[in-house]
Design a protein around this nucleic acid. Structure first.
Lengths: 84, 84
DNA sequence: ATGTAGACTGTTGTCGACA
DNA sequence: CTGTCGACAACAGTCTACA
């Protein structure tokens, strides 16, 4: 089945982490040195970030990149189970 | 100083993990559904993978993507310390 | 404050060939 | 088995503008 909507899951996680910090997309974009519209696309799963983008975002969110990825794994794993 | 040779560090880690498994670039490429020449470029730090590429590689290497990223963080952190 | 659109630049990732 | 090269298609990431 291969799923491969990693980008959607990443978007969910990113939005959750951002909101938890009561930060706007605009501010996140500014601080991470990325474009506001791009953050929007990321959260909606319309783009897959490169590894360097993940590092930038994690830094601004104050977590380790690996923790961000780990969150994605967890959700992805739940969804795979729900699939059989 | 901003460093930003995340791709070089990722390359180091990828190569280390691959060799530890006594796997050729060719086999890694085949199993991860990526191009052999691209694996070569990744290991030499000439390309930055997207998040989905990281997931593919980690799966073939038999580790969690977050663990792969964590290794990168560690080495990156050592290098930042060595810099002041 | 966010979503979307279109046009754009640069880079990822593919492929064939040769050392 | 790996590095590199050149050509290429596909997609990441920017920017302006409008709802």
């Amino acid at each position: 089945m291969e799923i491969d909507n990693i980008e959607s899951v990443f978007g969910e996680v990113l939005q959750e982490m951002r909101k938890k910090r009561k930060m706007s997309q605009e501010k996140l974009a500014l601080q991470s040195n990325l474009d506001r519209t791009y953050i929007s696309m990321l959260e909606r799963g319309a783009r897959k970030p490169t590894i360097t983008t993940v590092f930038k975002l994690a830094q601004v969110l104050g977590i380790k990149p690996s923790q961000l990825i780990e969150k994605v794994e967890e959700i992805l794993f739940e969804k795979e189970i729900a699939e059989n």
